[in-house]
Design a protein around this nucleic acid. Structure first.
Lengths: 108, 108
DNA sequence: TTAACTGCAAATGGTTTGCTCTGTC
DNA sequence: GACAGAGCAAACCATTTGCAGTTAA
């Protein structure tokens, strides 16, 4: 689940007819401050969010835009490798894979 | 060099006093279409651009915001590995390393 | 005279913020 | 009454776009 603020709003709107986007964003930012939610930057005009805060890589389908969590171990050795090569202090890294997901591949 | 549109504008403004941001963005997008420039998404409120279109990884300094091209080989085997694990078609990947650059480390 | 490109200003759209109001302790 | 949270609408700000003017072939 990697919803946009938009989607969260429309999901909640049925149960809370007075809900406003301001409230959605305000609470998302509170959750982000608390470390319960992360903002995903994947090169779009809008943000998407996720509640899975354990480190993981992402696969992004270039056909349908789906963002999928990858169940692969984080390769910490990459940080050390770059740190050795560059002398920068490397604390973390992010990997995004791009391609076509199963659903899009099978449908066409 | 990973300038924001803003920076490009102010650099050119001296030589072209009538330059407008619209023109900067318009031409950046033309260069992107032509594959001569790439837009960098690094999780900010604004975009940055680069003319180095050969595949490479980025290091981003969390202290000063600098984006630095890494002179490391692209590990194509990562794509194959993910493709085998997931069955998604993986065509490319992006890695960003985060930490503290030399300048900030030495001055900090 | 077209076609390409520009400046300018207005529009766009996701996100943030100010202010007021409501409910709870 | 104080305070936290909410709704609403306006503000924000990077980016895009429409339009009219300019230049060059």
């Amino acid at each position: 689940m990697h919803p946009a603020a938009d989607w969260i709003y429309s999901q909640l709107k049925d149960d809370f007819p007075n809900l406003s986007m301001g409230t959605v964003y305000r609470n998302l930012n509170i959750l982000i401050e608390q470390g319960l939610v992360k903002k995903i930057d994947f090169g779009s005009t809008f943000d998407r969010f996720e509640a899975n805060i354990t480190p993981h890589y992402h696969f992004i389908c270039e056909s349908c835009g789906a963002i999928i969590d990858l169940d692969l171990p984080i390769d910490e050795s990459l940080n050390e490798h770059v740190q050795k090569e560059t002398s920068y202090l490397v604390s973390r890294h992010k990997i995004e894979y791009f391609g076509v997901c199963d659903r899009c591949r099978l449908s066409g």
